[in-house]
Design a protein around this nucleic acid. Structure first.
Length: 447
DNA sequence: TCTGGGGTCCTAGGACCC
DNA sequence: TCTGGGGTCCTAGGACCC
């Protein structure tokens, strides 16, 4: 890796840039609270089932890494400070980060809050060398956001990402070693890079795929070169086989896409103590429905498909979904569908995680039926409510049909859930017992 | 040591239409 | 009367990314 500045490559050679902020969440926390400087800081869940989302380099020196269970992290580093995370704050920093990249080129594609790919080809007329552009970007991120980052440059996303990984600081024997900050992979270097790379380093190869490849005797990227793609496909699927074959040749045709649209959104939560029984699960559905409904409205979208995911104490998961002929963004409607979907599975086992996801988006103005229900109607819908009373009747009927359909498919009545729609409100009752789990409190009588 | 929460994409089977 | 094949949508599960 001869990344000496005097052999700086051309834009033609390394048009793709990847930036990755160092220890992003933890760094923001330290910026906002200077008393944390020099201390081992993490962001993550501190409860029994929590994991580390981001670890400062001081924490990493003690062996703490992201995705590590917090229980383990604390054992490695008893003085570890685990903060709960303030995602609105990280989003503010992320927007400022994106706007610095945007000053370089509008052709960029965010990956999470703290990484960005950029296509530098539009800089051609400025006669700026890619390494120079990368160094400028790093300087601005440091001087204006007070954050550190690593930048990689390559022919495509594959090499840019591998390069940015090498640009970062490393921990060796509990000591922090500075990284080069900017790393590029020139055409001559590409083959050597791939030669020494384990398959696990490739994008899309996680623990499961790595294990399958290992069983086939494939440990290194170079091992993939001679493999017959059709026989590889029998083990890892045709799409993965094609991707691996391309990457092994250093080819990656994924474009930098600055116009990607959100395809799904949702909310899930792992509980320190598992939920027991339909009552607790349904109450949590209502909370999740509120989160998802607000997120949809913030996006100006309605969703036709809702999915519920349950994870049990043995870590097995199960999902149920339903696609409607119209979109919803209303808390009451989403809640009743979520409860019907959750109620269609056997809830006698404790539930460790409950997730609720929305997809198949429509723009609100393209929704064939405008849904609205009493308790959580947003103001703009309420203004239209009177003149759209007929549509509202339609939507109530359509929603009821959807709920009936769920019960018919899954035999939901057999697990003790029934529902009724009345007026503008919605209520779900358990057949056994008189508890109500609708939008009203359990003791509220029907109007 | 025992695994979060935000997402994306792929696969496979079934239903339905032409 | 018995049967095809392709396309699209939906559902469920799994793997992966940060």
């Amino acid at each position: 890796m001869s990344n000496s500045p005097n052999s700086s490559p051309s834009l033609h050679e390394v048009p793709i840039l990847h930036v990755d902020l160092d220890a992003f969440f933890a760094s923001v926390e330290i910026l906002d609270d200077p008393s944390l400087v020099g201390r081992p800081v993490c962001v993550g869940g501190s409860a029994a089932r929590g994991v580390i989302a981001s670890a400062s380099y001081e924490a990493r020196r003690q062996g703490v890494t992201s995705a590590m269970p917090s229980v383990v992290a604390r054992r490695l580093c008893p003085e570890l400070i685990i903060l709960p995370g303030r995602f609105e704050r990280y989003e503010q920093y992320s927007h400022r980060f994106h706007s610095l990249v945007n000053d370089l080129t509008p052709e960029y594609e965010p990956l999470g809050l703290d990484e960005v790919f950029a296509d530098l080809r539009s800089l051609r007329r400025l006669r700026i060398r890619p390494v120079e552009a990368a160094q400028q970007l790093r300087r601005r991120i440091r001087e204006e956001l007070f954050l550190e980052c690593g930048v990689g440059l390559g022919r495509n996303k594959l090499f840019a990402k591998l390069a940015s990984k090498r640009s970062k600081p490393r921990i060796v024997d509990h000591q922090l070693l500075e990284g080069p900050g900017v790393v590029w992979v020139s055409r001559e270097m590409e083959r050597n890079w791939l030669e020494e790379m384990p398959v696990r380093a490739l994008w899309g190869v996680g623990p499961a795929t790595a294990k399958k490849l290992q069983q086939l005797g494939l440990y290194w990227v170079r091992d993939l070169r001679g493999v017959d793609q059709a026989s590889l496909a029998r083990h890892v699927g045709s799409a993965m086989a094609a991707t691996l074959a391309s990457y092994a040749r250093g080819e990656d045709d994924r474009p930098v896409d600055s116009r990607r649209e959100l395809k799904s959104l949702g909310h899930d939560q792992t509980f320190a103590t598992s939920l027991v029984g339909p009552g607790e699960v349904f109450a949590q559905c209502r909370h999740h429905a509120g989160v998802v409904a607000r997120a949809l409205r913030a996006q100006g979208r309605v969703a036709r498909t809702l999915s519920v995911v349950l994870r049990f104490d043995d870590l097995t998961s199960l999902s149920r979904s339903q696609t409607l002929p119209f979109g919803v963004d209303d808390e009451a409607a989403i809640c009743s569908l979520a409860q019907a979907l959750a109620g269609s599975v056997d809830l006698s086992r404790p539930v460790r995680l409950l997730g609720l996801y929305a997809s198949s988006f429509l723009a609100r103005e393209n929704n064939p039926v405008q849904l609205s229900f009493g308790v959580s109607v947003s103001s703009d819908v309420r203004d239209e409510a009177v003149e759209h009373s007929r549509e509202r009747q339609m939507s109530s009927a359509a929603l009821r049909d959807a709920l009936d359909d769920i019960r018919q498919r899954y035999g939901a009545n057999s697990v003790g859930v029934a529902s009724d729609l009345y007026g503008d409100g919605l209520r779900i009752e358990r057949q056994r017992g008189s508890h109500a789990f609708g939008p009203e409190s359990p003791t509220t009588p029907a109007p």
